[in-house]
Design a protein around this nucleic acid. Structure first.
Lengths: 112, 112
DNA sequence: TTTTTGTGCAACCTTTGGGTTGCATTATAT
DNA sequence: ATATAATGCAACCCAAAGGTTGCACAAAAA
């Protein structure tokens, strides 16, 4: 299955996991302890995060430490930033855009 | 149902819709024509985008124009940017972090 | 008026997502 | 050696996601 960073951060639990290990790695159980749901549920989230490169797991003894690869968020950052200029410099509103040519016969419309 | 911007941009089709109307509004059918899937499928995506404020629909006659509210992406931008400092200034790798205290008895581990 | 266009939406289907319990395996502790 | 801790993972479950067809209805065109 193709895992995607955008999809990975779509889930609030996964965003919280990322936040939790953003500053320092934690082993799987330590992460799971901070949630209400089962360890397995958290394990699956972590696994998905590793599948899209947002988390890297390193084993020490019987423990697995989860480290956040925050630089992978660049993909999201880049996508959003490409629109920043548009949304900050936008002078042409919809009315503005459609205003020229066919003057919109603005009609109430029955639907609420 | 509570719609969330992160979830909204998780789907590649919805990201493409946003991109398509980022510069100028398009009516629903015009958007749908650019995809393989049915108009209804696109309609549902657009509806979801409106539910989380990323798109605003204005009716002119029988047409509905979809306008992107890119500023709503701020929520995503803010979330990602809070980590930028960490990922750019990160000097402490996992080994670095765990290195002090218990020197990890790095062990091969049978699993591949 | 009649026809066509643009759209909303119900009903339905299949896949995926997020969660659970239970068990196997390896490492550490007794 | 035996018990316990940390973890991977299969097998299920149910709700949500994403898609389809079909129909209704208002607006614009003929």
């Amino acid at each position: 299955m193709r895992r995607d960073v955008f999809q990975a951060i779509a889930d609030p639990t996964r965003r919280e996991i990322i936040n939790m290990i953003a500053h320092h790695p934690l082993n799987v159980n330590a992460v799971a302890e901070n949630f209400e749901v089962s360890r397995t549920a958290i394990y699956k989230h972590i696994k998905m995060l590793t599948e899209c490169g947002l988390v890297v797991i390193t084993q020490f003894g019987r423990e697995r430490y989860c480290e956040a690869r925050l630089d992978r968020l660049n993909e999201v950052s880049d996508w959003v930033e490409q629109y920043r200029k548009i949304w900050t410099e936008r002078f042409d509103s919809l009315g503005n855009y459609l205003g020229e040519g066919d003057a919109p016969k603005k009609r109430p419309g029955k639907r609420k």
